[in-house]
Amino acid sequence: MREFTRQVSVLGRRSIVRTLRQPASIVPALLFPLILLAVNAGGLRSATDLEGFPSESFLDFALGFAFLQGAVFATVNCGTDLARDIQTGFLNRLALTPVRGVALILGQLAGVAALAVVQALVFLGAGLAAGASVRAGIAGALVLLILSFLVSVAFAGVGALLAVRTGSGEAIQGLFPLVFAGLFLSSMNMPRNLIEADWFRAIATINPVSYLIEGLRSLILEGWNALALLLSFGIVAALILVGIGGAILALRTRLARV
């Protein structure tokens, strides 16, 4: 167990150093969600005039989405980094050491996890500075940060799974539109009960992303909504299981070492 912890920690350290040395993967991950938040908070303000809209401030309504958009960068960054390790043969080098596959994947997630903490703090800080408030209070803000962190880790796990399965950075980048589609075809910009197009409401209702956003949003707009939180934590757990668990299993096949 001590050996395992040591392996995770040294690989995690490498992953964090690697992330810190790539400003091109940090800056957009922090900046783009904030830009979109600002633009939508301004551009969609009139939506709050609609009857039944759950908030008087579109900033409050949209803040939850920033955390999720940040998590998309986790998918791409983690996937691209791991795919690069496969393409350059660096993974083979690691595979020749007594390292365990689980340690490889967990270590790989460390850089993304560190960035996720920074992202969550920045988004929340920026939101509060711009006038947003968290109805669930300080404890709620803490849960918001934890949930946001877990969403990023879960998304990173999906990126890792895709990387191990495809072994190609280009394939990960190519999947970006698909990930974006998952985000956009959800309740990100409008509560589901105010979506007029039936087909879109149906898609948003079966899209798990809607429940992730609604869980985050519930803490900001409503306070403590057990069902919304349960659903979002449940989906995060399932994603972690599929992403990280799948990546560990897929790694066994890819390494093919006995």
Binding site: L44, L50, L185, E196
Partner: peptide, 17 residues
């Protein structure tokens, strides 16, 4: 995607004064 997401989700905005 932009077209689908905007028209699908935000159609209610036409009700805004």
């Amino acid at each position: 995607l932009f077209f689908t997401a905007f028209t699908g989700a935000l159609g209610a905005l036409t009700n805004v004064r």
